[in-house]
Write a protein that binds this DNA or RNA. Structure first.
Lengths: 341, 341
DNA sequence: ATGGTTGTTGAAACCGGTTTCAAAATGAGT
DNA sequence: ACTCATTTTGAAACCGGTTTCAACAACCAT
């Protein structure tokens, strides 16, 4: 529309054929350097921009990838995890010259419908899927459609699926070990069985305790669904069991837990120490600032895009790859480490 | 790829020409009802889906719109405003059969670069622009590119620009009037001069006071940048001036303000009443729940998409339209209305 | 020189739709 | 029954690139 120039014009101006211009554009070999230069000169002088659409049609590639977020509205709006991830993927896409298209759905059913639409449109070269649930419902659909896809967060049936995830087991382990190292023994946890990340963090918590021969008490285990409210409720349930410390499965739930503790008149970390998971901005803004396990969301997003780009380029996926990003404990005030110095 | 069927196949199966199939697909007139039905039958039996890319190339339309969010990382990650808006636009796009593509940039310069890329790619039928700043830097670029676009939030140079916005003046007015009605006289405000929404809310605050002949005290005016921290800092600055009530320009800043008040040992609303703006989820989760001005973000998003769709369809934009969505005061605990009953 | 590679190029087919244009079919009017 | 206007329809051009294929040129070794 704004761009009247076509490859034909360039071809004429450079006195070569369309095919040659195309070769230059796509950096194919077998073009004499002088010819290549001549064509490039014309291109830069005219400011020619190839029409993407035409390109796509001819090459059967759209360079558009979709990001499908399936999570409850509660989470998408309140947990900075999703904005952070979205941003990372958005910039990763830009780096890889891919256009990112966004789809948000709030229920698993809605997610399936969305996916149907996407797959039917056939416009996308690949998809990145992330969900606050275990996401398995989508897999067969995706596989049938034979579209390249990468999960963010391990789906529970991960066999043959490409995914990128944080090392959640390690996260739970680091957080809990830290509390043990600080001398706490009655250590509770607010976990989640909503997704595999929750399962893994819980497993990490358990293994840290086992490793130190600390008995795992059922009463010190509560569940939440990653919302602030659920963290609040879970902590309320935990308080009567008098834990000395609690590993909370996400920063957002930790904020809720903090509120419950404040209401109960308990100080953090003096009365109960807290370590959480994610290291999102609210963790540092919290009062007290949260000791938390940092997961590199930006890296995760980038890697997902890169993996997807690679699958798209190389055709079929080699053996499916599972990319696990390292995590790291960030010590702030909520664990009481400062006091113990 | 997954879809081997082409319009040619359908044409042969239905024993008509490609042109006729195309007419049926696009719901053009001048097709005999029987023929139309026959073709539709074949289409639904085969599950044929037209290839979008080809369609785009031929029709010079992509049905893809871009959403450009230009705001500091602080905001995008911490203020649920952007997720809420993004979601609304995402579903609005789906309703209008448009594919939504997302671009996030953190600085004005980055935003301009992003925009350059987008415009050069020439893939988009239109753009929705939203920013935490006044956004003017983008306008000339957009106008030169002759691409349809709609702003969310009034840019400061709104002449001839299509935009959708909340009635921010009214918002500030309602919030402040409410406080006046409750009997408060020393009413402060935490405003923002970062975007026009902030200007407008401040103007509404001022007009409400003027209307009741309450002097406007410079000392009761503080500025923030929509982050929680800035609300915290602004309230700290305000506390020594002993306001009875404060209108805070956004929920997120109000959360910061609450923290400052709590630290200062002041109770809300007993010592200082608060009314804020936006009515995002944190407003109801806050302690105490915030009386706030509800702006219908979902509606705003929807309308922006619809306006854009309309411009795209009808070619050039008729006289530019300014769509102002109504706002409404939601009374909760932070204003002290409950106490005064 | 001669035949065989390898490297470079352009013509034309192709991607899968939409749109133009003219022909064919239908319907109205007399 | 016969024009003339109006619908309905298909053939072919077109959108703007990529890719195939064959022709040609250049280079090499014999």
């Amino acid at each position: 529309m704004s761009n009247k120039l076509t490859i034909q014009h360039i071809a004429e101006l450079a006195d070569v054929s369309k095919a040659t211009v195309s070769r230059v554009l796509n950096e194919y070999p077998h073009v004499r350097p002088e010819v290549r230069e001549k064509v490039q000169k014309v291109i830069s002088e005219t400011g020619y921009q190839p029409n993407n659409i035409a390109r796509l049609l001819a090459s059967d590639r759209s360079s558009i990838i979709g990001l499908v977020i399936s999570a409850s509205a509660q989470m998408v709006f309140n947990d900075p995890y999703f904005p952070a991830l979205t941003e990372a993927i958005s910039s990763g896409a830009a780096d890889n010259n891919l256009i990112l298209s966004l789809f948000v759905s709030y229920t698993e059913k809605q997610g399936r419908d969305t996916l149907n639409g996407i797959l039917a449109a056939g416009l996308f070269d690949g998809l990145i899927i992330t969900a606050d649930h275990k996401g398995d419902a989508f897999i067969s659909q995706l596989q049938e459609a034979e579209i390249p896809f990468v999960f963010i967060g391990r789906p529970s049936e991960a066999e043959g699926i490409n995914y990128v995830d944080a090392d959640n087991v390690k996260g739970g382990y680091l957080a809990t070990s830290h509390l043990v190292d600080l001398g706490y023994r009655r250590i509770g946890t607010i976990a989640s069985d909503q997704n595999t990340a929750g399962d893994d963090r819980l497993a990490g918590y358990q293994s840290a305790l086992k490793e130190r021969d600390i008995a795992i008490e059922k009463g010190l285990l509560a569940f939440g669904d990653y919302t602030l409210e659920s963290g609040y409720a879970a902590m309320k349930a935990l308080i009567p069991r008098k834990p000395e410390a609690v590993f909370v499965g996400s920063d957002t739930m930790a904020l809720g837990a903090l509120r419950a503790l404040r209401e109960a008149g308990l100080r953090v970390p003096e009365d109960i120490a807290l370590v959480s998971h994610d290291d999102l901005p609210p963790a540092i803004q919290a009062d007290p600032p949260l000791t938390t396990v940092q997961q590199q969301i930006a890296t995760t997003g980038q890697m997902a895009v890169e993996k997807l780009a690679q699958i798209i380029m190389t055709g079929t996926a080699h053996p499916a790859q599972h990319i696990i990003n390292p995590v790291k404990l960030i010590v702030r005030a909520s664990c009481g480490a400062a006091q113990l110095n």
